[in-house]
Simulated scan of single mutants.
Amino acid sequence: MPKLYDYRLFISHAWKYGDSYKRLTDLLDKASNFEYYNFSAPKEKPLFPQGTPLTNKKIAEAITNKIAPSQITIVISGMYVAYKDWIQYEINESVRMGKPILAIIPWGNKNIPKAISDVVPIENIVGWNTNSIVSAIRRLVP
């Protein structure tokens, strides 16, 4: 079997994201015939070493550097309200760079924040379902 294509994903999340980010990466890890590289900064590998003095400018630059090599930005829309400032920055940077954005509606949710629906076309908003998410990534990444 030929090697699978590695999709380059940036998954928007916050450090105190609960288990949504982990559940999404687990779902993607288990998806059939799907390989990806995660450009996000997981909890185990933070953007900055502990004790590094942080400024909003440094955080913004680090996020921009993570988004730049990715092919798509994935936003779990249920986290937007709690972490809107940085998630909005990630959305804005993705739009500025011409990256497609895939919004995932968490299990049990029906609505997504207006800030997401304003920039993400309806066909790029999917439910919490492995096939829907993987199919959308394949469709959105050239």
Rank of each mutant, 00 (worst) to 15 (best):
G98P: 14
D85T: 12
F39I: 04
I67W: 03
Q71N: 12
A68I: 15
M79R: 10
I67G: 02
A60P: 12
T73S: 12
N65V: 10
K43T: 14
V81Y: 09
Q88R: 04
S94D: 13
Q88D: 13
I104E: 09
I74K: 01
V81I: 15
I74F: 03
A41C: 09
V81H: 08
E44N: 10
S77F: 04
L102R: 01
W86A: 00
F39T: 06
V95H: 02
F39N: 06
Y83S: 05
G78E: 13
G78Y: 02
D85K: 09
L102D: 09
N38Y: 01
L54M: 04
P69T: 10
E61Q: 15
N65H: 03
V81M: 14
Y83A: 06
T52Q: 09
P49Y: 01
F48M: 10
P53C: 06
M79K: 10
T52M: 09
Q50T: 14
T52L: 07
A82D: 15
P42F: 01
A62H: 05
K43D: 13
P46K: 00
I63R: 01
Q50K: 15
S94L: 09
K45Q: 11
D85N: 11
I59D: 07
E44K: 06
L47W: 02
P69S: 08
P46S: 01
S70V: 11
K43P: 08
P49N: 06
L102V: 09
A62C: 10
T55R: 00
E90R: 00
N56F: 07
P46W: 02
S70E: 14
A82I: 10
L47A: 03
G78A: 06
K57R: 06
V95T: 14
P42V: 05
R96N: 12
P49M: 06
E90Y: 01
N65I: 08
I59N: 04
I59T: 08
R96P: 13
K58G: 05
P53W: 08
K57Q: 10
S70D: 11
